[in-house]
Design a protein around this nucleic acid. Structure first.
Lengths: 138, 138
DNA sequence: CCTTGACTTGAAGCTCGCTTCAACCTGTAG
DNA sequence: CTACAGGTTGAAGCGAGCTTCAAGTCAAGG
């Protein structure tokens, strides 16, 4: 398969061309070869985009992804990079998940609020005894 | 308790004074009475801030909170407002939680990647057969 | 040759929830 | 009186992850 233009690649991955250019600008995509004033992506480029997409969908920030590509000595194999980086990410996600569970608990209490007016409700929250719950999560 | 100055209130709630002024500006806090060129918060003001804090900790955006305060006819009691709004939020949180679980699953697959080079790994992702997992979560 | 369409560039804009800044005002202590 | 603490205002900045815009370039088709 010959190198493809940016619009084709973008469509393939469900991205906008502007996103690909942005990735290049911030250095997570190496500069695409430009011929005839236009970018063309070969297999290596497509592979990298695939990695970016997968990592994004697992919650990686673009900074995380840059680290994956450029934060290790060349000799470090992909497998170890993934292992190290995914471990950190797991911890972060676990944390996020915990906060979400806290919010859900709080929400279920809030849904059972019996106050007439919001002011009263606020007063009860301040006394930490309102139906919406007395534990501030965080 | 007499009306308190902004710095005291901010400290009480663990906010910055600038945040309180911001809330006022975007209309989720009613304009504080100003005497001697300075804001002073009475019980009603404090109650409202307490509600805002609780709602924030349950994942409400400031727009959600504005709706809670001003998106209903005056006659609608607090209890019903909470019920309606928390139901929507529960659904959103459930959705977020699902996506997080998807990410965790994906991450655990990624951690077991055995690829040597990232390019190879990307190629496998493209063929949807790489260790990091073949299901793109969303 | 001219138009069209797809691309290029750098710069600026967007959302969210604030924070920071500069310039100014007010009340109190010494 | 001055100095100082602690406010006030509007405007601008931040970070993340892009998108949008204006102006220019390039190749193909008629």
């Amino acid at each position: 398969m010959s190198p493809q233009p940016i619009s084709t690649v973008a469509r393939q991955f469900g991205l906008r061309a502007s996103a690909l250019r942005y990735y290049e600008r911030i250095g997570i995509l190496s500069r695409a070869s430009i011929s005839g004033g236009k970018r063309h992506y070969d297999a290596a480029g497509l592979n990298r985009i695939a990695i970016i997409q997968l990592a994004r969908s697992a919650g990686f920030s673009l900074a995380d992804i840059r680290e994956l590509f450029t934060g290790y000595a060349q000799s470090v194999p992909a497998s170890r990079r993934w292992r190290e980086i995914t471990e950190r990410k797991q911890a972060q996600l676990e944390d996020t998940a915990r906060r979400i569970r806290g919010m859900q608990l709080l929400l279920s209490k809030m849904g059972r609020c019996g106050c007439d007016g919001l002011d009263l409700c606020g007063a009860r929250i301040r006394k930490a005894a309102c139906a919406p719950g007395r534990t501030l999560v965080r």
